[in-house]
Computed example of a mutant assay.
Amino acid sequence: MLSVFLAVLRRDLCIGWRERGAVLHQLLFFVLLVALFPLAGSGSPGGVRTVMPGLIWMAALVATMLSLQRLFRPDYEDGTLVQYRLSPEPLVLIALAKVLAHWLVSGLLLCLAAPGVMLAMGASPDMAGAAAAALALGTPVLSLIGAIGTALTLSLPRGGLLLGILVFPLYVPVLIFGAGAMRAAALGLPVSQGLWPLAGVLLLAVATAPWAIAAALRIGVE
């Protein structure tokens, strides 16, 4: 089973590398959304730092949702998902490998880019570090939950319109804990009050989401 997991992971990483233009567009969208937001307000450093936790997480959320359509749609259109469905290998393991590849290609870049963007906008190093840690714990949850919604809407012609409605309520705890960790760092408080709950949400998502994704894929390819 490990060989199957690594094979699917390697395949999706290679596909992600060939489609690096789309990945760079997602990263550029995230950076521009965060960097240009102060132009819509007063632009004062204090005001920017106040809204930065929510801004970072909303930008990460939108950037992640933009990339979710690449998670299963190409495999669905070329019949690869049908082969996965008929394969004796566990579909749960295949789904987990695909989500991990999606996060390595897209979510990890957001984790690496966010601290630099925040420092350029005047955030403290502690706040930037808290953002990197929170995004490292939270963006995999965004990918796992988003994969469930993507699998459920896979066979719909305009599934992307329903995707946000399905998954956004499940994203709320991630946004609250992630932004809370960043606000705690800005106030000089321990960031663990946001990171520990976020780590718990991640463990819960890893333990349950692949099963839900596999079940949704079985429905979507029938």
Rank of each mutant, 00 (worst) to 15 (best):
V34S: 04
L24G: 09
Y84Q: 02
L55A: 12
W57S: 03
A40V: 02
T139Y: 08
G107L: 06
A60E: 13
L119G: 03
Q69D: 12
F30E: 01
L156E: 14
S143G: 14
P140S: 02
P115C: 01
G79D: 03
L36P: 11
L39K: 00
G146I: 00
V105G: 10
L55S: 05
T153N: 12
L104S: 09
K98Y: 01
H25N: 11
L81H: 05
F29D: 08
A97Y: 01
P140G: 05
S42W: 11
Q69Y: 10
I145M: 15
V48M: 00
L109N: 14
L144Q: 08
P140V: 04
E89A: 14
V92S: 06
V51H: 02
P45A: 07
F37N: 13
D75I: 05
P74Y: 04
P53M: 00
S143Y: 09
M65V: 07
L66N: 11
S87A: 11
A95Y: 15
R49L: 14
W103H: 06
A60N: 06
D126E: 12
T150V: 02
Y76K: 00
T153Y: 03
A97P: 10
T150G: 12
R49N: 06
L144A: 09
A123R: 06
A40F: 11
L66F: 14
V105D: 15
A101C: 10
D126S: 13
T150Q: 11
L156N: 08
K98M: 02
V23Q: 01
Y84I: 06
E89G: 04
L108D: 13
P115D: 00
A113I: 08
M65D: 11
Q26P: 04
L152M: 15
L137H: 08
L55Y: 06
V82N: 11
L33M: 13
L108E: 11
A130H: 00
L144Y: 11
S67F: 12
L137F: 05
G122V: 15
L154T: 10
L55G: 08
G116A: 12
P90K: 02
L137R: 06
H25A: 15
K98I: 03
H25C: 15
A131C: 12
A132K: 00
G46T: 13
L61V: 11
T150I: 02
F30V: 02
G146D: 05
G138P: 05
L61E: 05
Y84E: 03
P125D: 04
A151C: 04
S67E: 14
L39A: 15
F29N: 02
R158L: 15
Y76D: 09
H102L: 09
I56D: 07
S42R: 12
G146T: 04
L61G: 08
P38G: 03
L110D: 04
K98F: 01
V51A: 15
V51N: 08
M65G: 13
P74G: 07
L135D: 00
L71H: 07
F29S: 06
L119Q: 02
Q69W: 01
G41S: 09
P38H: 12
L152Y: 09
V31K: 04
G122A: 10
I94A: 09
V31L: 14
A22K: 14
